[in-house]
Amino acid sequence: MAFQEPIEKMSGRIREITVGGGDGALVIGGENVLPFYAWEGDMPNKPVVAMEVYDTTPEGWPQPLVDALGEVFHDPAMWARACVEQHGADMICVQLASTDPNAADTSPEDAAGTVKAVAAAVDVPIIVYGSGSTDKDAEVLKAVAEAMVDRPIAMGPTTEDNFKPITAAALAYGHIVVAETPIDVNMAKQLNILISQLGLPPERILLDPSTGAVGYGIEYSFTVSERLRLAALGQNDDMTQMPMICNLGKEAWRSKEAKTPVDEEPTWGDAHNRGVLWEATTAITMAASGANVLVMRHPESVALIHKAIDGLMES
């Protein structure tokens, strides 16, 4: 008898959800296997890249990023268009950093205006992240949700401390929430349950389990994400079956290995390649842990990741 490769059958499936609206809508998730385990089941939608666009000119970013994107920093809509048209972004992730009360503290209305402008410039799905300030995010995302009533977006981060107002806004205006928890399987699941209990269907929740960059706890993030996938697939655990999003660009470019110029650390080698590879390695690791959306910064790392994912999907 011919050798039969043993197949591990999973009992669960990641929810297939649609992000964005109109012609640009994109379907993610839907796999009933661990990432790229094509021989054991199917993975109908490949992981996608959402490129970051900031609502204000970023300060102090490392040179490789400035070289690649500096021309569009001043205008989020232009930035977004460049990402989609020139760099192949599957989605745009608008980071509303300037709304932070400890930064420029821009108003919710301004933030809504920025998001609207970006949306007008591109038709790919839009993900909106607030600054991470619990109370301000609730106000800002409410305004954004209202402004974007005609074009569904995904918005976050929604945490245990502000899920109520943000979920309410998502419910009222038809959006998806991004539920963010601090690298913990149980907390991730708990937040999903809490959000669902407010009446938001699980198809409108994206799971952000938080990420560390290579060298900054990525093995821990990887394990937590993988465990979430194992619970979703292996135990058919309904409240972990949301597609996952990894907000990793920020983390990778914050690491000193990615941002230190070569004249400061001559032995570390070329800063450009170093930064790009740091981000790409972080991204591919998280894709392998089960991320469905990778939030990234540099066009070259995005290109690398697209290539890697295509390769993995073919094999």
Binding site: D184, V185, N186, M187, K189, Q190, I193, D237
Partner: peptide
């Protein structure tokens, strides 16, 4: 962590 929920995360 999974017990820190009512009645339990599971």
């Amino acid at each position: 962590m999974s017990s820190l929920f009512l009645p339990h995360t599971d």
